[in-house]
């Protein structure tokens, strides 16, 4: 009996540590393959404005800005839409409709990104071209649209759970004071669900910035610096798409190869910073959670 306990405990322990072990291993591998790029290229080159690997120009700036542009666009579109959907599902929809909408949103999350990319290519991008009257429909904006669509399920489910977790007493208190349904949602329920809503947004951003396939298929992949006011409506190229597109053809051990891994490190760093900011915000907002009602 005691032996069995011991074996089971040991197995669980191994499973737990292996998860950590693999994460560390991946990180070390990324570092080993990526860090050499920093002495194989000059800093001016690496953070330069031109990405032409064939001419040994490895400027990652257009890729970073491309990623940020597409992600930012996606968040601006997805955030209000996702929040509104979550509020609708939780606060306004009658029960039967909620029972349909919740699983539908979860199914949405399960659509493979390549399918969405395909849809974006054949259905969305022609629309973008016609409606915005731009030379090509394969633009950063198209990417933002697809990404927004892809991060919606995450934002909706997490925000919905956060709203659901707001104690009923908060709603009752506000309603009994003569707050309207809308005042209650806006001033009591959403502020009380604040940290959960922020997590929802951050998870949405995380999903958006790391997404590769759909973005690669619809953004046109031109590594150019978005500097005009309407850069969103021109092609762009993201960090993820660059890695995915070029990794297959690159000579292993070459500078280009190392730089692609270095882009991976950058991506990792950006995601890490976003997550860190999210946790900070949540921790700061934490102690006030539950009792928080805003005026």
């Amino acid at each position: 009996m005691r032996n069995r306990e011991f074996v089971i405990e040991a197995l669980i322990r191994v499973a737990g540590f292996s998860a950590i072990f693999f994460v560390v291993l991946i990180f070390l591998f990324l570092m080993r393959e990526g860090v050499p790029a920093f002495w194989e290229t000059s800093a001016g080159n690496f953070f330069g404005e031109r990405w032409y690997p064939n001419e040994d120009l490895f400027g990652t700036l257009p890729l970073i800005l491309g990623s940020l542009l597409v992600t930012l666009g996606a968040v601006v579109i997805a955030l209000p839409l996702g929040l509104a959907t979550a509020v609708f599902i939780r606060e306004l929809a009658p029960g039967w409709l909620r029972e349909i909408l919740k699983p539908l949103v979860e199914i949405l999350a399960g659509i493979p990104s390549v399918v969405l990319g395909f849809l974006g290519m054949v259905a969305v991008s022609p629309l973008v071209r016609e409606w915005l009257n731009v030379p090509t429909g394969l633009t950063a904006f198209t990417g933002s649209l697809m990404l927004a669509y892809m991060s919606l399920p995450t934002i909706i489910s997490v925000a919905d759970d956060a709203i659901d977790a707001v104690p009923k007493a908060h709603r009752d208190g506000a309603l009994a004071l003569g707050a309207t349904h809308w005042q209650t949602i806006w001033r009591v329920v959403l502020p009380a669900a604040r940290s959960g809503v922020i997590i929802a947004v951050m998870l949405g951003i995380g999903r958006a910035i790391g997404e590769t396939m759909a973005v690669m298929m619809v953004t046109g992949n031109a590594a150019r610096i978005p500097q005009e006011w309407n850069a969103l409506f021109f092609p762009a190229r993201t960090m993820t798409a660059t890695i995915a597109a070029e990794m297959g053809e690159v000579a292993q051990g070459s500078t280009h190869y190392h730089v692609l891994f270095a882009v991976g490190i950058l991506l990792f760093a950006v995601t890490f910073v976003i997550n860190a900011i999210a946790s900070l915000v949540v921790i700061k907002g934490g102690p006030r959670r539950g009792g928080r009602l805003m005026g």
């Binding site: 007493a169 309603l175 009994a176 004071l177 009792g291 928080r292 009602l293 005026g295």
Partner: peptide
């Protein structure tokens, strides 16, 4: 109606104000 008929609950929930 709810302004005319006020209510106090079992658990007091002051606003963080």
């Amino acid at each position: 109606l709810r302004r005319r008929v006020g209510m106090v609950f079992a658990v007091p929930i002051p606003l963080p104000l």
